[in-house]
Simulated assay, not measured.
Amino acid sequence: MPTETINKPQPLYTPFVRARDSVWEIMSDVLLALVPCAAMSYFAYGEAPFLVMFVAVISAVLAEFVFAAFFLNKKDTLKDGSAIVTAILLSFTLAPFTPWYVVAFGAAMAVIFGKILWGGLGRNILNPALVGREFMTVFFPAIMTSGSIWYNKDYLNFKELSVFNIFGDSGLITYLNSLFFKSSGAIGEYSVIFLVLGGVYLLLRRRISWHIPFALLVTFFILLQVFAYKDIRFSVGGLLLGTIFMATDMPSSASTKNGKLYYGAMIGLVAILCLLNDVRHEYMSYSILLVNAFVVPINWAFKPVTWGKKANIKSLIKWVTLITAGIVAATYALIYLHHVDCVRYLVFAYIIFLICRFCFMTMKDIEYPKSN
């Protein structure tokens, strides 16, 4: 072996693991997938949605810089771009005229209570953007449910875009036009077609796998047909935004292929249960965050079989049954809390738990310093 090869510093990888892409490259692909949807928001309400996104990004970046340095003793976390992605995803779930101070609060909470207090990037078990949104809903309920933040005719640029009319004029063409552009809903919901194209791009780039979106949508629409006699109303854009960009968040989703299929199916089930019980606006946030909380047992139940051993189907069925029962029970408990306006106490409990957990881990690290 040549001397220069021996003396050359070797990468700190285990023998069979290679890191080809940095976190920033992954986050850049997510941002690229979101650009078309952001552009469509401009066709709807001009600069207003962009200002919401801008405020969210500034707040998230500042919170990341200050609190990561203070709590985690890390000053270079901004390089991974996760704060920007979290802020954009959060803003995509918001109304275009949400007050800026509420947006800033939500983005900061998304970073602090959705990521930093868990220990940083990759250690969170809940989707940070949805955590921030729930903080906004709990601490600013009147503003978040106000109709004035969702629609303003003085700022409306285009109510509709007739891009498919060149193929004729029919009910199908009208429906396709609505999928391409619809000036209602949250900032990220204006174009179903661009949401799908963003998901396809992430699939081709292998930033997400097909398992979670497939299982979620198949479960959701099968149950939708089962309960077709019910008047279930939902936003296709909101469903796809949650399915493609929220449910597939790597740290807070299942890790194995079979686990991902089950995880996605459970989100679809919880979403339908929420809609059947008149949870009309928070159904995707609730379903994703709730199943996020069950990711650890899901990963354990669907852990890979040790080489040379056979899969224990009976044990798997038992654990899947128990986990499903737990998810359904937790869903109805959450629905009850929603209807009696007590979700706020769940958020308060989450805040106390996370602060206590972080303090305990900090004290443990002080008592038993980690080796470098």
Rank of each mutant, 00 (worst) to 15 (best):
P2H: 08
N7G: 07
P9C: 09
L12G: 12
Y13V: 13
Y13L: 15
A19V: 15
A19F: 12
R20S: 14
S22Q: 10
W24F: 15
E25S: 11
V30C: 06
L31N: 09
A33C: 02
A38F: 04
M40N: 00
G46K: 02
A48Q: 00
F50K: 07
L51Y: 03
F54C: 11
F54S: 12
A56K: 02
I58N: 03
A63S: 14
A63K: 07
V66M: 10
A68G: 02
A69R: 14
L72P: 12
K75H: 15
K75Q: 15
D76T: 14
L78D: 07
G81S: 10
A87E: 02
I88G: 07
L90D: 02
S91F: 06
T93K: 01
T93Q: 08
L94M: 10
A95Q: 05
A107K: 04
F113T: 06
I116L: 13
L117Q: 03
W118S: 10
G120E: 06
N127Q: 09
A129M: 09
A129P: 09
G132Y: 02
R133C: 12
F135K: 06
V138G: 06
F140A: 10
P141F: 10
I143M: 06
M144A: 12
T145E: 11
T145F: 10
I149G: 06
W150P: 04
Y155Q: 08
K159E: 13
K159D: 08
G168W: 00
D169T: 07
S170H: 00
L172Q: 14
N177K: 00
N177I: 00
L179I: 03
K182D: 06
G185D: 03
E189L: 12
S191K: 00
G199S: 08
G199N: 09
R207W: 07
R207Y: 01
I208D: 06
H211I: 00
H211W: 07
P213Y: 01
P213S: 06
L216C: 09
V218D: 04
L224G: 14
Q225L: 12
Q225Y: 15
A228E: 13
K230M: 15
D231G: 11
I232T: 08
R233A: 15
L241G: 07
M246T: 06
A247L: 05
A247Y: 03
T248I: 01
S252G: 02
L261S: 00
Y262I: 05
G268H: 02
L269M: 09
L269P: 04
A271Q: 08
C274M: 13
L276M: 10
L276G: 11
H281P: 03
M284E: 05
S287P: 02
I288N: 10
V305Q: 01
K309C: 09
A311F: 07
I313T: 05
L316F: 04
L316W: 05
I317P: 02
I317E: 03
W319V: 12
V320G: 05
L322N: 05
G326F: 13
I327P: 08
I327C: 09
V328G: 12
V328D: 14
V328S: 15
L334T: 15
I335H: 11
L337V: 14
H338Y: 15
Y345H: 08
V347P: 03
V347E: 14
F348V: 13
Y350P: 05
I351R: 03
I352D: 01
I352E: 01
C356H: 07
R357S: 12
C359R: 13
I366L: 10
I366T: 05
E367K: 13
E367A: 13
Y368S: 00
